[in-house]
Design a binder for these strands. Structure first.
Lengths: 228, 228
DNA sequence: AGGAGTTTGTGAACGTGAGAACAAAACCGG
DNA sequence: CCGGTTTTGTTCTCACGTTCACAAACTCCT
């Protein structure tokens, strides 16, 4: 979202990268159901994308399909995982163990998809006695030590908005170069650091925009226009 | 994400719609700080976008700036809120009161940004005794009654993946036409229903992809390639 | 062995979005 | 009242993403 590192081998478009995890999940489900092979049409249905788009996406990874047959589920699944980089486990730190931090720490989807929560950090001493999801909450000041010790490259910010920029600065200084930000703030980070933002109320507002246009809604402007 | 309703007045590009809430938040902050006027350059800095892009975005709403001066913060803020549709309060139901549902119910950002959680629903009877954020958890079967009674148009799904499609079907049948889905599944919904997806592990995987290309990472393929 | 039927991979056309650049419009100081 | 300065609104160009359409390639059945 901030800067794009120069990719070496084959340059995969950003839009494609964003869809690869979706394909990966669908393939995992298919594999669990014992499906050995699937066509681009089937996979497209399962993931809700156009089949031509899907084929083009996969073609950036290489030619892993067989014409007239389709794709080998296990093999394609592995190739996508390798491209994304989730064949290895990524250590992750979560900062801010409030409601959302709790939910994130307990989210089993991380572990099963190539991520391992190695530390939970919070500046509030009263939270540092807790143990969440088998990991004990440690003081935020331990950040640098943990990053060093575990080789953490990815940080998750689940603090209030006011604290987010400070946390980000400390993370960057500690060597973290990829940040997933749940705080409703725009983060300023140096070149070479990637930030992705997840914002709950923005998503709702986008829905509201479309919803408003669906029905000629009853009340038009219940709140007063401010005087200029 | 599924179907686009035909917009009547001026058609605002989807990319612009996604940025309007960001501008809205920045303007709110500026207003709270007592700033009366700001230029496109200042607002662009605060939101992390290109100033030309920002001006183009705002031009879709109308000509609300003054050349040589900039934008009136309060006035622009109102105009954006009106376009998005958050001058009125949107009633919202949350289904699935697990870790994430708790966090969502407690998230104060909803209330302050045009949304009101009118009901928390869960199929598990043991959860139905709880009171979360001042709202008591009710059985999922109350969905239709609540939607009818409160005029709910937006639903949030925070259930496990396995239950999500059923919940979505019930929501659609009850009259909900906009769904924010936190479950890691692709939802199938009829034409005219909007679904937006928020997926935590997908965001992390996208970060992992870029992270992998930043450093020529030590271990390349620690997991075995499956035999074909 | 060969033809019919499938399904991939990709070239080409189209649409959308981003950013540079600039003219038009407003304010300000003298 | 007028020239200089600032900043918006918009046009133009380029890059990116999506979709169609089809040839190439593979399997299966006779």
């Amino acid at each position: 979202m901030t800067s794009r590192p120069s990719a070496e081998p084959r340059d995969i478009p950003e839009a494609t990268v964003a869809r690869l995890p979706v394909y990966l999940r669908a393939l995992t489900t298919l594999a669990e159901d014992g499906v050995a092979t699937c066509s681009s049409e089937e996979l497209a249905q399962a993931t809700g994308v156009n089949s031509a788009k899907l084929r083009k996406d996969l073609s950036y990874l290489g030619s892993y399909g067989t014409r007239g047959v389709g794709y080998d589920v296990a093999y394609l699944r592995y190739q996508i995982a390798r491209q994304i980089g989730v064949t290895q486990d990524w250590p992750v730190v979560i900062v801010g163990i409030g409601n959302l931090g709790h939910a994130l720490a307990n989210y089993s989807g991380f572990r099963s998809r190539g991520f391992r929560v190695v530390a939970l950090l919070d500046a509030d001493p009263s939270r540092q006695e807790e143990v969440v999801a088998g990991v004990d909450v440690r003081p935020f000041d331990d950040l640098e030590a943990i990053v060093e010790e575990c080789g953490v490259a990815i940080g998750v910010i689940a603090t209030p908005a006011a604290a987010a920029q400070d946390v980000a600065d400390r993370m960057v200084a500690a060597g973290i170069r990829s940040i997933l930000n749940f705080a409703p703030t725009v983060l300023a980070v140096p070149e070479g650091v990637d930030v992705r933002k997840v914002d709950l109320s923005i998503e709702l507002q986008i829905l509201a925009y479309h919803e408003q246009r669906k029905s000629p809604h009853l009340a038009l402007t219940p709140i007063e226009e401010p005087a200029i």
